[in-house]
Amino acid sequence: MNSEQSSATSEKWSVEKNTGLRFFLQTVIARAYPRIIGQQREKSWMFFDILLPMLAVSAYVFVYRAIDAPDEYVGFVVMGGAMTAFWMNVLWSMSSQLYWEKEMGNLSLYIMAPNSMMAILLGMALGGLVATTLRALAITILGGWLFKIPYEVTSFGQLFLVFMLAMVALYGMGMLFASLFLLLSREAWHLSNLAQEPVYLFSGFYFPIKSFNFWVAASASIIPLTLGLDAMRQLVFPSGAALGFLSVPLELGILSGLCVIFLTSAKLLLAHMEKLAIREGRLTESRR
């Protein structure tokens, strides 16, 4: 083979590699892709993901009806039930995702690959967010129809902003937890399981957070869904403002702050935990 032929062959087989921001975005899309497409291929997931929260929502709605609660509380329950889908997604498909990847043997491949772990987590978050939004929307519409809930949105712009900020902060929190869970093994499952009911309680998924005293509600506000849910209820229900914990603009400000805090912390902690996990040999262990 002469040099001309050799050069032609190498040109034929050379692949243009993305670097920098393009590579980062490519990784984000690549990781988000299976989550979004996976849902289209396995539609029965959607059915179960809607049915399970709907059962809990219905039970709590009937409790309110048994004690003759005003109708807006029924609406609060449906909205809270819809938002449980996001919390479940953050717990099981963000926080403990790296534990599942470890169990299946994929985690070491993630670490070996030349892409950023932050981009992988961001892709996971983006894919999870899109897929879960569809479920939450379905629960809200189905619950609204079943229990005849009067939604009266006062500002669609603010509602969209609150939702987006709450989601960015929440999934930032999920990325932060995912890096912490890198070191965990079997206990990851139990810790995710433990974080369900207490958060439903303190974030006011089924009642207004204002029912707690100020400091309990303020402490619970570290979880972005607490303020997100409170602000959304104020914007969606006629009596929501009277039962709100803080004003919507203030909650928007705090949620913006939480977005910055969680995303920055996730970046710093991920780098630290990745190094620690490599040093301690925890990336490939499987303690069942």
Partner: peptide, 16 residues
């Protein structure tokens, strides 16, 4: 876990 589940109902009941 169980106490939190019970507390949700207690709070719902007590505010109404």
């Amino acid at each position: 876990k169980p106490l939190s589940g019970a507390a949700i109902l207690v709070v719902m009941y007590s505010i109404i």
